[in-house]
Write a protein that binds this DNA or RNA. Structure first.
Length: 495
RNA sequence: GGCCCGGUGGUCAAGCGGCUAAGACACCGCCCUUUCACGGCGGUAACACGGGUUCGAUUCCCGUCCGGGUCACCA
């Protein structure tokens, strides 16, 4: 075997710093668990000034989705997770798309066979099925582990299809370390001689992963805890090649409830879905970071972090071992806070499409509505239902005028409106301040609590029990003509 | 079923032999207030269970129970 080629491959591997990778399958959308994995992976690289790379694992042709890679790129960009090497920008250890690395794996499998750590298995699918029985459980029995050389030659000559399996020691133990779970030791006897190269010549995921991670110089592997059981086999592979084992960071899944992972099947939202539901990317990222990780030390009490802050304090020691249930309520809390923290201009810019959709009345100045709604939204979607009355006064019941605490009823509400009407009609200037002065002045003048006047006015203007802003704000925004019209209508309706 | 991992309030979680067991969301109450929100204050609520080890266990060990993962020529 020509070792020169292998040496050249080794020579390409960057040495020294931390290198992490996010290696998604292009299935067309980014679920929350994936996003969290990407985030942690990115944070580990940035925390240590290392490199973060992107590798597309597209070996499963059946699951390929049109432009799925594009969705991955755009999601990562929107989240602020920039990569240093990847399919689109290249890098020293490319290609970064697995199907373009196809011919690599066979060579390494060959090398492994020569070292005695792998062997050809000619057992057909039929034999394996019989072996596994009805429950489908149980590993490979090692039937082809020690086939005589002559028999192997014979089968090869006859063109019998084969796979290449990893030769795992029958005795002894293997220990691997995980940054989250610590040291885990298993008996080698419980490990299966897993397939490395399939009969079609393509590598299995487990094999391709080890090869690619090594050849790309990956130092920290972040992945789901479902790979915990196969990690000993990975270690054995690294050992067989004489390669350095990366640091493992296994993360428990993000769950939708006690029993199920988040999944598209169950209708759980993906990152894109959350944005479409009116969430801010920053809020999602902040929340997701805390789902399965918590800061220690001086930051232990904090919950709100920018990406940059996270990249300065993230430590794998804070990653939780147990699964976390995704809580939309808490995400809303984060989002509400992010919305409130926006500058008025930024909020208006973001809210504008939602306001325009809800309010077609050109007389209404949307920039005046935005600040009213800013402290009252969990997501952008909360805007429309709050402001629809600016568009047109809804039909409402006179019972809305009755409020125990305000001490209002239909009778005194009508009186209040009748007293308000001439005051507003005579108002020379229709500004917030003048309205405020006029309305509260009237209450004072009549010796009434503010609410006795303001509650009926707010009700007449909106026809709703709950509105963003009170009587003064609504008058101001609706304008003189429309405000007076609605108050007159209120009087008529109460009469 | 074998093997691996996990188990603090409804949820996220701090804790890493000694604490009245943090904090946040949600929920409830009060205050503020021109409604609702925001804000402020307060409240309900947890160490799965049983054995050890120890002067002392949420914390260490064992067992039970419960949950998750894995046992593919899928990733």
């Amino acid at each position: 075997m020509d070792m020169k080629w292998f040496d050249e491959m080794e020579a390409r591997i960057p040495k020294g710093g931390v290198r992490t990778r996010f290696a998604p399958s292009p299935t067309g959308y980014m679920h929350v668990g994936n996003l969290r994995t990407a985030l942690y992976t990115w944070l580990i690289a940035r925390r240590s000034g290392g490199a973060f790379l992107l590798r597309i694992e597209d070996t499963d042709q059946e699951r390929l989705v049109e432009d799925a890679a594009g969705i991955i790129y755009s999601t990562l960009r929107k989240c602020g997770l920039d990569w240093d090497e990847g399919p689109d920008i290249g890098g020293p250890v490319g290609p970064y798309i697995q199907t373009q690395r196809r011919d690599l794996y066979g060579k390494y499998a060959q090398l492994l066979m020569e070292k005695g750590h792998a062997y050809r298995c000619f057992c057909g699918k039929a034999r394996l099925e019989a072996l596994h029985g009805e429950d489908g459980l149980g590993g490979y029995d090692g039937h082809c582990r020690d086939l005589p050389q002559a028999e192997i030659e014979e089968k090869l000559a006859a063109g019998v299809p084969y796979v290449i399996r990893q030769r795992i020691p029958r005795s002894g133990q293997t220990t691997f370390s995980d940054a989250v779970f610590g040291d885990i030791t298993v008996d080698n006897a419980t490990l299966d001689d897993q397939v490395l190269i399939k009969s079609d010549g393509l590598p299995t995921y487990n094999f391709a992963n080890v090869i690619d991670d090594h050849l790309m110089g990956i130092t920290h592997v972040v992945r789901g805890s479902e790979y915990l059981s196969s990690s000993p086999k990975y270690n054995l592979l690294y050992q067989a090649f004489g390669w350095q084992v990366p640091t493992y960071i296994h993360c428990s899944p993000v769950m939708r409830d006690q029993h199920n992972k988040m999944s598209k099947r169950h209708g759980d939202p993906s990152y894109e879905d959350l944005l479409a539901k009116g969430f801010l990317s920053e809020a999602v990222v902040n929340y997701v970071a805390l789902l399965g990780w918590s800061p220690r030390g001086e930051y232990a009490e904090r919950e709100f972090f920018t990406l940059r802050e996270l990249s300065e304090i993230f430590d794998t020691g804070g990653i939780s071992k147990s699964p976390a249930i995704f809580d939309l309520e808490k995400l809303k809390y984060f989002n509400a806070n992010y919305l409130r923290a926006l500058s008025p201009a930024d909020f208006f810019a973001g809210a504008r499409p939602y306001l325009e959709q809800a309010i077609q009345n050109p007389a209404v100045d949307l920039s005046l509505v935005a600040p009213l709604v800013q402290p009252r939204c969990d997501t952008w979607m909360d805007i429309a239902p709050q402001v629809d009355f600016f568009n047109a006064l809804p039909a409402y019941s006179n019972e809305l005028y009755c409020h125990k605490k305000m001490k209002t009823n239909e009778e005194n509400s009508r009186q209040a409106l009748e007293q308000v009407l001439p005051v507003l009609e005579a108002l020379p200037q229709w500004s917030y301040d003048s309205l405020h002065e006029a309305l509260l002045g009237l209450a004072q003048q009549l010796g009434l609590k503010n609410g006795r006047i303001l509650w009926p006015v707010r009700t007449a203007l909106s026809g709703k029990a709950v509105t963003p802003g009170g009587a003064v704000e609504l008058c101001h925004i609706l304008g003189r003509e429309e405000s007076l019209r609605r108050i007159r209508q209120g009087i008529a309706q109460l009469g």
